[in-house]
Write a protein that binds this DNA or RNA. Structure first.
Ligand SMILES: [Mn+2]
Ligand SMILES: [Mn+2]
Ligand SMILES: [Zn+2]
Ligand SMILES: [Zn+2]
Lengths: 150, 150
DNA sequence: CCATCCGGCGCAACTCTGTTGCATCTGGCA
DNA sequence: TGCCAGATGCAACAGAGTTGCGCCGGATGG
């Protein structure tokens, strides 16, 4: 019952991912669809390694996965940022909007959570300075990690 | 004239660095003093590689430099954070005050400027999240780099 | 249908950044 | 000055990501 429902939802999610990919003019290959679907369904920023684990059955080649992730970032469908352990983490981009938004990074598990709080207004800069990027960097412990030992 | 003055200032900076190091109870070794002095004099967060270049004469062993940087971070004299290219960058910690303040990083020359604008108020977090660090990350072009080609 | 083409894939080898093990050396104190 | 815990230097290692190149298979045109 729930199994069937999940399977249907799963297929729908895959189709959505495929559409988003084709919309860019590129091919909706299995690797791309599977990775984008995963990123869109998981509320966190995942590492290359975590993604490899998560799509364990029918494994994707290591390099292919790197190239899929590069392509997703380049085409605007995903974000990449280096975590505190200097490993890249990938998360699905918000559909319509590329606009800046606020992130919370858990210092225990390394995951990144996207908050819907609007970014703060930029402060006044010294004469001659120009701003191209503004982001509020928030770190601490996520709900899942609060109260865990160490 | 200016040469002499710079040399004196240079020695004074080195002595300050040595004092800060001894104050922690550890040895003020040449490598530690040279690295901390550099970080304190440069208004930017530098990579291991950039630091190696900057203290070019009398080179420090690669591994020793890594260990010096680890020690500086561990002892609270420097900060480490991974940049967008997933490389660690190191900067001197503010002496008395660790309080959050606003930084502007020039994407052309890489320098970091400390603004006196107060950091924004923290947004409300999801249930169970706790905040330990808040920083406004501002990037763009500094006054010196505005209007330069590329 | 078939030929062709080109984007994507798989594998191997490589680079870059940082770490670990271990022998040797030395800063700072007695 | 002599001592020795704590630093250093060298070599080997590890993880994350990149590059080169030949191959494959889906799209496209006849
Ligand atoms: Mn996000
Ligand atoms: Mn600062
Ligand atoms: Zn967490
Ligand atoms: Zn600049």
């Amino acid at each position: 019952m729930t199994v069937v429902k999940n399977a249907v939802e799963s297929a729908a999610e895959a189709e959505t991912a495929a559409l988003l990919i084709r919309r860019t003019g590129a091919r909706a290959t299995p690797a791309r669809v599977r990775v984008l679907r995963l990123l869109r369904m998981v509320p966190a920023a995942l590492t290359h390694h975590e993604i490899e684990q998560a799509i364990g059955d029918l494994p994707v080649d290591r390099v292919t996965l790197y190239r899929v992730l590069d392509w997703l970032v380049e085409s605007g469908l995903a974000h990449r940022n280096a975590d505190a352990q200097r490993v890249f983490r990938f998360s699905a981009a918000a559909i319509g909007e590329h606009s800046a938004h606020t992130h919370f990074r858990c210092e225990n598990c390394g995951r990144v959570f996207c908050l819907d709080a609007a970014p703060p207004a930029p402060p006044s800069l010294p004469e001659g300075f120009s701003l191209s990027h503004l982001e509020l960097d928030l770190r601490g412990r996520c709900a899942g990690c609060t109260g865990e030992h160490r």
